[in-house]
Design a protein around this nucleic acid. Structure first.
Length: 500
RNA sequence: GGUCCUGUGGCCGAGUGGCUAGGCAGAGCUCUGCAAAAGCUCCCACAGCGGUUCGAAUCCGCUCGGGACCUCCA
């Protein structure tokens, strides 16, 4: 609990790191913008979910009871405001000859599957937009009553100009309201708005719309910002601690959320806005409009022209953790392959560490080494508390790797560090590697039968080696390698194996 | 065009006034029947030009390059 007071997070709203203090002591409310399930998730989507998964895990590690709300946008927003009276989901449903909800279900399932591959924890609540139409309508009503929204031709718009008179519209995204008001766009349907900066709370639905609901303003569907405001308010209250999402949502999505919720609830909704940066490919943001999307299914199977091989979900997770969440992260095969090897090295050492046994009562024969280890371990907490510095923690872990390997190989005696330090290292590594970073073994290896077979093969190979029958010993190792099982001789005559 | 971010060694990426980041790749050595793994050592970078400072990759200015948002977007 001591760490709770030293956590600092970068708040996009103030543009600086702030000491984190939850509204309700011991509790944290966190809302993260979830996926629009009108298509498959891609590598770019993986970043926020893994980033905020680590935030979620870390807050819990600090002793907070966290309510983590991550929505599913299944209501389909219009393609481009006012231009096409057609929502994404209904459009694609026609193409694929599926019911809208069937399509939504398909991609929701796929998304859940991918999240499971990444070993992300499930959110506390995963509300859907279609399940909260009533709440959204109620919220819009309140905004109209307050005088900050108006109805126009069956649609409802938020009055940005009026809001800006008394509120700081544009602060989060660094927008200047006058400039926004000047922006003139020749868009169809724009005449419904009093001002081009206004945004839709409710859109009247053209007859071809499949997803449509009855409202006080006629048949239509909710605007694309209101669902988050409505669901966050419902499950986290008028004011809550953390709102997360990608930086590309800063404007207009999150800016609009602030405006809506502020009018409706008479308070700014969010204490800490946290935004992750983009994953780029060849220096360019990954996104549909750039035609450079690598879907998660493709990433895991290697089936994409940009990919020279398949990448395991844990490799991707590790790759993302190796950079700071607020920096752009550039995808390349080289970088992913480096991550793959790095993760293997780290994980191997991690497993070796857990198998080390301390000498009871040992106080450590190498004080310098002991101090170094303790310093590296202490910094885990320090770095995480400094705006979730996962990359720096990993760097420290890699500094521990040679120490661990040397102990395993007997180059350094286990007793070089005290029993207490070793125990702490084992525990601290476990907490960070598994509990906070959410990493797990890449290969699902060991079942009992395979283990039995391997024990047998190892025994035969040992015998052969003793007899200098290297033909047999090499045959065993080489044939296993062909099957994807690596067998390694170790110092002291032992052998270890792993499924690659 | 406006707003903002950014430019680190072969590649990826931390860091941010003085102290080796780290990973991957590469070179050498040790260990080893061979191999793999592992250990040790080397490769010591911060776009360019000025300025501030005892001292700058880190602060300021300019130049050049890259990017994000301003429209759906993680």
């Amino acid at each position: 609990m001591n760490n709770q007071i030293s956590l600092k997070v970068y708040n996009s709203y103030s543009r600086q790191k702030e000491a984190f203090q939850s509204i309700t002591p011991g509790h944290v409310g966190m809302y993260v913008c979830g996926p629009t399930v009108s298509g498959e998730s891609h590598l770019g989507h993986a970043r926020p979910y893994i980033t905020f998964d680590v935030v979620y895990r870390y807050l819990q590690q600090l002793g907070y009871k966290v309510r983590y709300v991550r929505n599913i946008t299944d209501a389909g927003h219009f393609e481009e405001e006012g231009r096409e009276a057609e929502d994404k989901i209904s459009k694609k449903a026609v193409l694929e000859k599926l019911e809208p909800m069937e399509l939504v279900q398909k991609y929701t399932n796929l998304y859940h599957w991918a999240m499971e591959q990444f070993n992300t924890l499930k959110p506390s609540i995963e509300p859907t937009a279609t399940g909260h139409i009533v709440e959204q309508i109620e919220m819009i009503k309140k905004i109209i009553e307050a005088g900050y929204a108006y109805e126009s031709n069956g649609s409802v718009y938020f009055d940005v100009k009026k809001y800006a008179v008394s509120h700081d519209y544009g602060k989060l995204s660094g927008r200047v309201i006058d400039e926004l008001l000047e922006t003139t766009r020749e868009l169809e349907g724009q005449e419904e708005k009093r001002d081009s900066a206004d945004f839709a709370l409710w859109k009247n639905a053209a007859p071809e719309h499949i997803m449509r609901w009855q409202s006080p303003w006629g048949v239509g569907f909710p605007g694309w910002h209101i669902e988050c405001s409505a669901m966050a308010t419902k499950y986290l209250g008028a004011e809550f601690d953390i709102h997360g999402g990608g930086m590309d949502l800063l404007f207009p999505h999150h800016e609009s959320e602030i405006a809506q919720s502020t009018i409706c609830n008479h308070t700014a909704p969010v204490r800490y806005w946290i935004h992750n940066n983009m994953i780029t490919i060849n220096g360019r943001k990954m996104g549909k409009s750039y035609n450079n999307v690598i879907k998660l299914t493709e990433l895991f199977s290697g089936d994409h022209p940009e990919l020279s091989q398949a990448y395991h979900p844990m490799v991707v997770r590790f790759f993302i953790l190796q950079s700071h969440y607020r920096s752009t992260l550039d995808f390349s095969n080289e970088a992913l392959q480096a991550a793959e090897k790095g993760l293997k090295r780290l994980w191997d050492a991690y497993e070796k560490l857990q198998a080390l046994v301390a000498e009871p009562g040992s106080t450590g024969t190498d004080a310098e080494l002991g101090d170094k280890v303790k310093k590296l371990l202490t910094e885990f907490d320090e770095y995480m508390n400094d705006d979730f510095g996962t990359a720096r923690v990993l760097a420290n872990m890699f500094e521990l790797v040679p120490v661990i390997n040397s102990m395993k190989d007997g180059i350094i005696a286990v007793s070089a560090i005290s029993a207490d330090t070793l125990e702490w290292m084992k525990k601290q590594m476990k907490v960070f590697v598994e509990d906070i970073f959410g990493l797990k073994a890449v290969n699902e290896a060991d079942n009992e039968k395979l283990k039995g077979v391997m024990d047998l093969l190892i025994a035969i190979r040992k015998e052969a080696k003793t007899k200098k029958d290297f033909v047999t010993s090499d045959k065993i190792r080489d044939e296993l390698a062909r099957l994807g099982i690596s067998l390694k001789d170790e110092k002291g005559g032992g052998m270890s194996w792993a499924v690659e």
